[in-house]
Each structure stands twice: as structure tokens, then as C-alpha cells.
Design a protein around this nucleic acid. Structure first.
Lengths: 347, 347
DNA sequence: TTGTAAGCGTTATCAA
DNA sequence: TTGATAACGCTTACAA
């Protein structure tokens, strides 16, 4: 039981071991430089006192922290979880620690978190999406902290990025929907404000519509917050305002599951009465009944590649570029051709 | 474009503004002490240089960080996500920053993360479950860093905790199952090694069995890792080895969903042929068909209460105690009475 | 109201 | 191989 003393310092250990602080520091950082006997002495003192280096002091003296920070919009759902887990595992294997903060999809909080992580000595940052206030990039530049953007790919953006082409992928998915014969399409999108992924996905829908000669301008679309419930409410509204829709394209799987749930609640069968598609291919997509047609995102691959790339950048071994990963379409039960015009129905 | 200069320091700002470092420090920490005019001068310099305090230096000089660390077993699923989100929101409102690390359910990694967060100056720690190496508590004690355990309640444990009684809750759930007439019960549990929640839940099942005069010793039980797939595999094994089971009690909702999926794949109807129950009541529980009978855990409430309590402890306003929250049973479609003996069946 | 200067706990350079 | 000692960037008495 320690009296109430504050944490032991290098100095305490040095005194206890009868050596200088420099020697203790070496014991921590490069024990091979010490004699077997001094090493033993110091070791005993360290253990007895329960010494751990003070991080702050260490950073100040050594400049490097071996810490990477990541700021994700939310921890509350699976979208970022799997990729982040892979990111963290890869970092760990390379001797880096991951610190995570979440911004609740708010740019002001994100900025605060960026400052917080940087001032805590993060050697590099993982961010989601390209959209943020211009001051942020300047800040990162003056602080000399590199950042990598994930979950979206944009060769033209200022920051290096790793991810997939949200717009192209959504277009490809909608082209499948159109190929099946759907013409009356509605969209449930996540809030597009300050969320380039959501924006690009909507653009992808419009691309496909326009290319098929359909009216991309007057696309029925409802924007909503994140969550199964939100998806359900959005579905109801969309269908009430546009009763003739045969396919609902959702900006992500969570919204899509909400839409499917609500469809059932309204007495609509999926996919017989209405088709539903998602985006992300989270685990949930294959659990629901019918399984969700969606865009498969290589979460784990993206996470570990992001880690490797960010480490390279942090260690000055490369400058960072835009890397595009493939996002493929997964056709599953929630998408089927629309009902034939009533007159033709056998029943 | 800054040349390549490293981040600006207090000194740089002081020079640029033509004041002392102390004045700049005051501008950051207690601007009201300064004259309007000096405040303006300093402000301009700070903005021009894009200055942010160096956290390490600050900690060393000031001792407090306003940072709370949390270490959770995994970020990859919803179990901890919602509570943690609430935890973070409450912290933010009180001026604290949350740093999260995940241990992949490994005590060695958890210990490493504890040291990492402590040495980074965390003022307090949120941990999950009571089970960890004895050295850890000593470490926290000598470092003077308070910790609060969540997701489980244990008045006898050394650390204060906030959560529910896993054992009692599981017992209550199984009593419902027994009340419905089930006698042939199997269990799918998460790995119980170093996971007191999992252990207690299994004990809860045995409690209920024993109280009903059933054989609690020879309970068919399969332990598995976390995940829907794992739950599916475990279900198959459990049913293969014990064909006569009518109800499967799962240690958490994710395993339960896996079990339900696999039941369907094996041609078994839920709940007609076999009942399934979960634990946690994550969102998924109400999305699956049929909805999952489970133990409802007050995730958000627990998260925000944990935050308030930990802040109290950190600020020396209370010593921390064990707080028990209610976990209630949610009866849903996945649980129904067992099929009557074949002879009585109408068909 | 502002400035001076002494720490805070490390690391790293130089000598010994 | 080890030991002094000067940074590192900030806060905070204390002095002016």
C-alpha cells in the first residue's frame, strides 16, 4: 500500500537502484547497452516501485509517440467497426497504438478531436471522408501531422485517401436495379451535409438514372439521420408521397434494414411488392430476411491497408497517394424484378 | 505553406505577440485575467501561427488532463457501442475527452492498453468486467488512477462497478423458459476464460435449472468465440450432440442470432421446433424474425451513469461504490412453449 | 496586469 | 558502460 505518493519517476528508480537517471532510461529504451548486473539492479528497482514512464515527458524529450489517432463519425454502428478493428490490429503489429475518438457526424466536434489527438502527440491521423473546414488542413500542415482519409477514394483531394469510389459503385448497383426492369425508384439517403460519401452515393443514383434516359432531376429522395428507426420512418414517408415506387435505394445497409422492416409493417412484401437495396455489406445484410442486395465494401482490407499506408507516411517512407479499392455488387433476395402490370398477373 | 518548421510553441507566440510566455499561457487558460488589448494581440499571434498547446508539456506542468480512457473487449460489435457512445456524450458535456482502446478480449492486451492510457495521462479509466491480473490493480493504485468497472455489478469486488447482475438476470430469463415447459435446455456461451460476464451468465442458467430440480451438472453447453458465424456453428454442434433439445439459451444476442440462422438452415423452425434466447437486447434483437427473447440491458443509461460516477471519483467528490442497474426480461417471438409430445399433435 | 524563472519527467549529447 | 546535464513546452508562484 503506497502512502498516497504520486507515481514513481525515473529519478525515484535511479535512487532506489543506486544509478543515474540516464542508466534507468537506457534500461527502458535499450537494455542491451547495460551490463547484466546493472540491468538486474535496475529491474528490481523498477518492479519494486511499479514504475511506468511518464508519457508526456517522454514525448517532449523524444518527439515520437508511436501513436495513431482515428476519428470516426460514430462508434454506434457496424459501418466503421470492422475496418477500424483491422486498422488497429495492423497498427499493433507494427508497434503503434491506436487512439479512437468519435465525432457524432459533427464537423465541429471532429475538429476538436483532431486538435485533441494532435496535441496528444499522435504521429498520424486517420479521418473519414474529405469534407472539412479549410483551416483543418492548414492546422495539420503546421503541426506536421500527416493524415489519411479512408472510406472514400478521391484522387483530386488534398489529402491522400484509401477507399472505393462511392459514386461509381452506387451507379453500378442502380444499373442492376434498372436492368431488372425497375423504373420507379426512390432514394433514402443519410444526411448529405458534410458527408461526401452520402453525397456521392446520391450522385451515383442520378448517374445511373440519367444514363438510362430516366428523369434524374425529380428523383424522389428522403434524407434522414442514421439508424434503423430513421430508415423505417423515411421509408414510410417516401412511400406515402410516392405510392408508385417499386425499388428503394438506400444510402447504407442500416437504413435499408429499417426500410425493409417498415415495408413489412405496412404490409408490403420484399421483394415482391418493393425491392430494397443497401450499401456497405455489413454483417446485418446477410442476417435479415430476405438478405439485402448491397455494395460490398472490403472493410478489413481497407483497414489494414490504411494502417500500412499511414505508417509508411508517418515514417517518411512515402508521401501518400489515392488508392482505390474495389467495391463489388452483391445481389441478394431483397432485389427482384418489379411486379408485372396487374392485368398480366395470373391470380 | 510553412517551410517544414515544427509546430509553433508558446515561445513563438510570445515573441510574435511581443509578450511573455506566461501571458500567452494565461491567454489559453484564463483569458479573463488579461487586458482587452493584450488579449487581442495574443489572439492574433495565436491565429497567425496556428498554435496549439503541446499536450505532453501541459500534462507535465499541470498534472490534470481532463481525459478519460476506456478499454473495451471489442469495437467490432454492438454490445459496447451504444453504452460507450452515451458514456462519451456525458463526458463531453462535462469537459472531458474520451480515448478508447480495444483489447480483443485478451487480458495481456488489456493490460498493455491500461498502461498506455495511464501513461498518456488518463485521469480515470473505464474497464469492462472484474477479471484481470492482480498486478493491474496495484499498478493503478501506485499511479493514483481511479478505475470504474462497467457492464457487470459486483459489490464484493475491489474496484467500484456499475452494471447489472449477470447471474441473476440470466436466472430470471431461464426461469421464464422453464415456466413455458421447456426441460431440455442447451447453452451456447461466449468464452468464459477471463470473462466474468460469460461465467456469471452460465451460472445463472445452472441456478435456474437447479432451483427447478433439473440436472444442472450435465447441462449441454458449447463455448465459442464471438460472432454470428460462431453462434451458428455452435448451434449445429450442440444440436448434433443433443438432438432432443427444445430451447437454446445463448450468452448474448449475437450468438443467438447465429443460432437462429443456423436453425433455419437445418430446417428447424424457431420457435416451433426450437426456442432461442439471447442476452443484451442489442438493436439486432428486434430486427430478426422472429424477434429475440432476451435480457434487456440499459446500455445508454449505464454509459451515462458510468461517466457521471467516474467524473465524481476523478474529481475526488466520491469514492466510488457498486451500483446495480435493472436488467429486465424481454419476451419476444423466439421463445414459445415446446412442441407437445408427438402423440398429441393434431396433424 | 504582466514578466521572471523554477520546475515537471524524460531523452540525448558529451564526457568520463 | 555509465554519469552529468542541457533541452523539450508548459504552468505557476512570486515579483514587479
Amino acid at each position: 500500500m503506497p502512502e498516497k505518493s504520486s507515481a514513481p519517476t525515473l529519478n525515484d528508480v535511479a535512487q532506489a537502484a543506486g544509478v543515474s537517471t540516464a542508466t534507468v532510461s537506457r534500461f527502458i529504451n535499450s537494455p542491451e547497452q547495460l551490463t547484466e548486473s546493472t540491468r538486474k539492479k535496475v529491474k528490481i528497482a523498477v518492479n519494486k516501485l511499479g514504475y511506468t514512464p511518464n508519457f508526456g515527458a517522454r514525448v517532449m524529450a523524444a518527439k515520437r509517440t508511436n501513436t495513431i489517432g482515428a476519428i470516426i463519425p460514430t462508434m454506434e454502428n457496424a459501418i466503421f467497426a470492422r475496418g477500424l478493428q483491422a486498422f488497429q490490429e495492423e497498427l499493433r503489429q507494427n508497434g503503434y497504438t491506436l487512439l479512437v475518438a468519435s465525432s457524432s457526424y459533427r464537423t465541429d466536434i471532429e475538429e476538436e478531436q483532431i486538435r485533441s489527438l494532435v496535441s496528444r502527440g499522435a504521429d498520424g491521423l486517420l479521418l473519414i471522408g474529405h469534407e472539412r473546414a479549410p483551416g483543418v488542413r492548414r492546422f495539420l500542415e503546421t503541426q506536421g501531422v500527416p493524415a489519411l482519409v479512408a472510406w472514400t477514394y478521391d484522387a483530386a483531394a488534398a489529402l491522400p485517401s484509401i477507399g472505393f469510389d462511392n459514386r461509381k459503385s452506387m451507379r453500378a448497383l442502380v444499373e442492376e436495379v434498372l436492368k431488372m426492369g425497375h423504373r420507379r425508384i426512390g432514394v433514402i439517403s443519410a444526411a448529405t451535409k458534410a458527408n461526401d460519401r452520402a453525397q456521392l452515393r446520391v450522385l451515383g443514383v442520378r448517374d445511373a438514372m440519367a444514363a438510362a434516359g430516366l428523369d434524374a432531376e425529380n428523383l424522389p429522395i428522403v434524407e434522414t439521420t442514421y439508424g434503423v428507426d430513421a430508415g423505417a420512418l423515411a421509408f414510410e414517408r417516401l412511400m406515402r408521397e410516392n405510392e408508385w415506387l417499386t425499388a428503394i435505394i438506400c444510402g447504407n445497409d442500416v437504413l435499408a434494414v429499417g426500410a425493409m422492416t417498415q415495408a413489412r409493417a405496412l404490409g408490403l412484401r420484399v421483394p415482391e411488392d418493393v425491392s430494397v437495396t443497401g450499401f456497405d455489406d455489413i454483417e446485418l445484410a446477410t442476417i435479415v430476411e430476405p438478405a439485402l442486395t448491397t455494395v460490398h465494401v472490403p472493410h478489413r482490407d481497407m483497414g489494414s491497408k490504411a494502417a500500412r499506408m499511414l505508417i509508411q507516411i508517418v515514417e517518411g517512407k512515402c508521401r501518400g497517394k489515392a488508392v482505390e479499392l474495389d467495391a463489388s455488387i452483391r445481389l441478394r433476395g431483397s432485389l427482384a424484378p418489379p411486379k408485372p402490370p396487374t392485368g398480366l398477373k395470373p391470380e
